[in-house]
């Protein structure tokens, strides 16, 4: 039923596909193809790569847009029909069944947007390892999707939720995780602990090198799991019947 509800929101589906396209188009139109050098932060402080600025920006913005869109979808899934879902719970559903249905939809959305954003990259350049870039996008969607679920489980009203997502996702996925910025950043430790760090490292590493990203993979999964568990606990508490 949750899938049906999302499917019927045609404008939202169009926007989910249009927004990554627009972001990529803006990057292509505004970024030069000069060669830049930057540090692969998750590998070592001495590992530098030299790549086209446009290609690097495309991967960076691809991950940022997947993270932003999935966090908003997750927020909407949690907040929309909250009281109707509570009614379903007093009718007999368990809160875990409700949140599981939302999670299944969210996973589907993450894969679709991630796949679309990764495949679109091929129009502009050939990443070294496309599946790795896709994995980074999907993990970025997963971490920020779980963040959206958490924010949606805490706040009842849309505006607070949107502001909290914009606050973190814009600064983190949309700015600080740009390897270009990171190379010159003063307090790198802060950037390394933000949610999009490891997924973006996976995409960047896979886009231009054949280095291993195993550590970033495990840490991405862990980061998302922490958000998810917190969301499950809060949603369970808010929807629990008082008998």
């Amino acid at each position: 039923m949750t899938i049906k509800e999302l499917y019927r929101n045609r404008i939202a589906i169009i926007l989910l596909l249009l927004i990554p396209t627009l972001f990529y188009a803006l990057i292509v139109l505004t970024t030069s193809d000069r060669i830049i050098a930057f540090k692969l932060a998750s590998i070592s402080e001495e590992t530098f790569v030299q790549v086209s600025e446009e290609s690097e920006s495309l991967i960076f913005i691809g991950l940022a847009v997947v993270g932003l869109l999935t966090s908003f979808v997750a927020l909407n899934l949690m907040q929309k029909n909250f009281d109707v879902n509570r009614r379903l719970i007093i009718c007999g559903f368990h809160s875990s069944e409700i949140i599981l249905s939302k999670l299944i939809v969210l996973v589907g959305v993450i894969f679709l947007i991630g796949l679309y954003a990764a495949l679109m990259l091929l129009l502009f350049f050939s990443p070294e390892y496309l599946l790795g870039v896709l994995l980074g996008f999907v993990l970025g969607g997963y971490v920020y999707g779980c963040y959206g679920l958490l924010i949606g489980s805490i706040f009842k009203h849309e505006l607070e939720g949107i502001l909290f997502i914009v606050l973190l996702a814009n600064i983190d996925a949309g700015w600080l995780q740009n390897p270009n910025y990171y190379a010159e950043a003063q307090s790198k430790i802060i950037i390394r602990y933000l949610p999009a760090f490891h997924p973006s490292q996976i995409s960047i590493i896979s886009g231009f090198t054949d280095y291993s990203f195993a550590v970033s993979f495990i840490l991405s999964i862990t980061y998302g799991a922490v958000f998810l568990i917190a969301a499950l606990i809060i949603f369970g508490k808010r929807t629990r019947t008082k008998k």
Partner: peptide, 23 residues
């Protein structure tokens, strides 16, 4: 409930089915 607590973006039959599942 006093307030309308139904799924607005589902049809009548789908609302029936959803709640039937809950029961």
């Amino acid at each position: 409930p006093q307030e309308l607590l139904v799924f607005e973006t589902l049809n009548v039959q789908e609302n029936f089915l959803y709640f039937a599942n809950a029961y």
